[in-house]
Design a binder for these strands. Structure first.
Lengths: 226, 226
DNA sequence: ACAAAAGTGTTGAGAGTACACCCATGC
DNA sequence: GCATGGGTGTACTCTCAACACTTTTGT
């Protein structure tokens, strides 16, 4: 820290891993790169930070550019900064991950993307830069958080049945769960309330639930540091 | 991500929160700033990244400059990037935290510090920049990790008694632990081995232990949800 | 002998896990 | 009435927390 201007500065970007649940699957939003390097390959949405916006604001801006949503779960994931991760030069990226309910989003291509679409986390295309590493880490973190917080709800629509909730957990964790134990535990946690409505379909109609606002607030309070 | 040169670049620094256990206390290494801004105030050691080194290498370099040690526990903590956190302009800092055994270190002042010394985490001086926030977060993370991993050992010398280990946990967690439960739990985790030596002093001599480096250190996390 | 720290077991409560059948509806 | 998914209870195991006295050494 000798002198302020002595050091060449890296470029700094923010990348946002956007997860959702669609088609009974855990999916992630990717964009196809319009420009070199890695032209035509798939990448996590992101972009350069602006000089007067916070990192979180930059992540929210990217998120909104790609999905038109705000007010979703967003958490800083990790900062990736290997000197050779971008062939154009030194680029450090602060990765975030976001959880959005599928029904709230219609992906749209941004400026630098020819195309944007959902991909299954379990069947990904080849990815630009070190984005495979970033996604692998994001999945690990999502699974881990699911085990001790209630973030799973952030991926579901406003109301849902217990079977839908259980299916969400199973898809993300990649394992089957016992129905009775799941229901007992989730109900005794006191974070759900019945809506009074039912979902009909094949078989017996299922009670619809929503998250209790106060419980969701508690989870949200714990989510982001500073 | 329109064009590479369109964006003014922020400066990027790495700050390293260096924890140790000394004098029966959890302490952190701070340096007194020689230059403005915040001249004369205490700060977490850190500095600008070099254009061709990775973030982790930069953190290791800072750590070695301040403490002359390598090969200690080092983990990326969080990236702080509010636009106004440094009055000189836009500076993003990638914070790391390091755990060093007290007997391995003799702090030394670096280039930009008039002075370097250990401070109790529980009696800190006023800090430069947003370093109070960084330290608060580092402590939270350290406590959290202590509950489900074996990182506590990284703060202790090569060999130690169970009472010393317990005292370390108590200082970091800020609470008293039951001796019998602590011993049973830590021994049944199978991560310690006896050295065969004893530490003598006042009272009955105590067995010395060391950490088994082949042990899987992760203590099973208790899940909030299935 | 006494001070000082090391070391040691049991019990009760609560949480987690495994497991199989009846219920309400649409067709 | 039958196919389909929704909904329910119990017994066993394991983990965690609370709690007090004996042992070994140095002086």
């Amino acid at each position: 820290m000798t002198d302020w201007d002595d050091y060449p500065r890296p470029a700094v970007t923010v990348d946002v891993v956007i997860f959702t649940l669609r088609e009974g699957d855990l999916q992630v939003l990717l964009i196809r790169r319009r420009n070199p390097p890695f032209q035509g390959m798939w990448a996590i949405p992101g972009g350069f930070i602006r000089i007067d916006e916070s990192l979180e604001d930059a992540a929210l801006r990217e998120l909104e550019e790609e999905t038109s949503v705000r007010d979703v779960y967003l958490e800083q994931l990790y900062t990736f900064g290997d000197p050779d991760r971008d062939p154009r030069g030194r680029v450090i990226t602060v990765a975030y991950f976001a959880l959005v309910p599928a029904d709230a989003v219609r992906p749209r291509a941004g400026d630098d993307a020819a195309e944007a679409r959902w991909w299954s986390m379990y069947h990904l295309p080849p990815l630009a830069f070190d984005h495979d590493k970033i996604l692998a880490y994001a999945l690990q973190r999502l699974r881990y958080k699911l085990e001790y917080t209630a973030v799973g709800f952030e991926l579901l629509p406003e109301t849902f049945t217990l079977s839908e909730l259980q299916a969400a957990y199973e898809v993300i964790l990649g394992e089957k769960l016992d129905k009775r134990n799941f229901r007992r535990k989730i109900l005794s946690a006191g974070i759900l309330e019945e809506t009074g409505e039912y979902r009909t379909g094949e078989g017996r109609p299922a009670k619809l639930y929503r998250f209790r606002d106060d419980a969701v607030a508690e989870v949200k309070a714990r989510r982001l540091f500073p």
